[in-house]
């Protein structure tokens, strides 16, 4: 570590490489351990967003569905900021697949809604879903851990 590195570190400008190593490992191991290939994960992400969008309008741009791992238990964490809830759920199959394009249309549509229906547009906390990995099923405490980590917002 040079003196310049040290100063940068003190001023909080730079993360130490040991911390980066830990964070990168946690991410890569979550994927290694779940054995889900990226394509399946993406498909699952889209279907989850589709279901959720039938009930609430979510901010597609800032949605985050990811795998996390702790104590050899892998969990799927979804952090889906809610713009507003729908009065009635949309029929099955009408939720739009999540993507940057549809997301943009969606937010435009919701702006219109907000103009017509101002009281519906109150700020809501992000919806957060937790699905513990298979290992967690026998272990209640693991699911609790998953819930607490889900409560922290990005």
């Amino acid at each position: 570590m040079t003196v310049l590195d040290f100063i940068n570190r003190l001023l909080g400008r730079e993360k130490p490489s040991g911390t980066m190593a830990r964070q990168r490992l946690q991410l890569v191991l979550a994927h290694d351990r779940s054995d889900l290939n990226p394509e399946l994960l993406e498909q699952m992400r889209r279907e989850i967003l589709e279901v959720v969008q039938r009930y609430v309008e979510i901010d597609i741009e800032s949605c985050d569905v990811s795998l996390e791992t702790e104590d050899r238990v892998t969990a799927l964490l979804a952090n889906l900021p809610i713009k507003r809830t729908r009065e009635f759920p949309l029929p099955i199959g009408s939720g739009k697949p999540g993507g940057p394009d549809t997301g943009a249309k969606e937010s435009a549509a919701s702006l219109d809604n907000a103009a017509e229906n101002p009281e519906a547009g109150t700020a809501s906390p992000p919806a957060t879903a937790v699905t513990p990995g298979a290992d967690a099923l026998q272990d209640g405490s693991a699911a609790e851990r998953g819930e607490t980590s889900a409560a922290s917002q990005p």
């Binding site: 570590m1 130490p16 490489s17 040991g18 190593a21 830990r22 490992l25 191991l29 702790e70 104590d71």
Partner: peptide, 18 residues
Amino acid sequence: MMANQEMLAVDDVTDILA
């Protein structure tokens, strides 16, 4: 290096590998 956080810490490794 560990003290300077330029290497994974002992706890990092034991926590990750459990």
